[in-house]
Design a protein around this nucleic acid. Structure first.
Lengths: 135, 135
DNA sequence: CTTGACCTTCCAGTAACTGGAAACACTAGA
DNA sequence: TCTAGTGTTTCCAGTTACTGGAAGGTCAAG
């Protein structure tokens, strides 16, 4: 399979597939006589795996780690669970942050009349918390 | 005020203050005879404003826009509200994404025994969804 | 043989900083 | 006054995970 075929099969842009090979996230593919990259089905499976893991927010380095576990027939499921749980905690933390952000900003937006006049609680609220009170 | 004083007052790293001046997000400060940057209170207020806006997730370019509105005594509050509401929508969207991510990953983690055996629904779930079966 | 799609490498740019090197400036103490 | 130590300057490079584009080689169809 040429690179565009494998990219299509894996649901990734051609550039990204090339990039993943370049950084050694997936093994360097064989080359045709004229230098074209030649991928096999195993490469497609790994690329799909990586795409999915990336969609889940795992970093490329975590993907590398997961891919190692994916390849290892003898790894324990505990190893995988540890990484996934860590990621789950990060997601939960991010959710909490977003929530307080949302609440605070929504509060400011609601307080703003949104008319032609210059008074604006949003601007005031962004600046005032620490040093702006006196302008 | 030298750069470290203003950075301390604004709650930003020195490097970041220099960076914000370099990209023209805040005006280029006056220089001492020996070339040291010399900031005033107005600069501190603007830097605090930017820091807060960044904490709210506004991009640097949005900060530039907000700072323009912040500086403009005659802008309407509607202008500000428009930007803030857009950001609020983005936050809400990000929250929805994170939620489905969380649910899906939590489901996989719960299904995993996390023991010494190699069977792992997380690994299987990451690889299987799209292309391994029939896509 | 030519056209057009596909492939190659390499360089640069994105966002928003951050780290580090080399050199100059300032301040306090001996 | 010299010196040590810290602060500041500029500039370059690296970060993350790609993405866009240029210049040029390859392949299949007509």
């Amino acid at each position: 399979m040429n690179i565009s075929a494998v990219a299509g099969a894996a649901g990734l842009p051609v550039k990204t597939v090339r990039y993943y090979s370049d950084i050694g996230l997936v093994p360097a593919p064989a080359r045709s006589a004229s230098g074209y990259r030649s991928y096999d089905d195993a490469a497609v499976r790994k690329l799909v795996f990586v795409r999915r893991a990336r969609e889940f927010g795992f970093s490329v380095e975590e993907c590398r780690e997961l891919l190692g576990l994916y390849e290892d027939r003898y790894r324990s499921s505990a190893d995988v669970k540890r990484i996934a749980t860590r990621r789950l905690d990060e997601i939960a933390e991010k959710q909490r942050e977003l929530q307080s952000l949302h609440d605070e900003l929504a509060h400011l937006v609601e307080a703003c009349r949104g008319d032609h006049r210059p008074d604006c609680p949003i601007i005031d609220g962004l600046g005032a918390r620490h040093a702006l009170a006196s302008e």
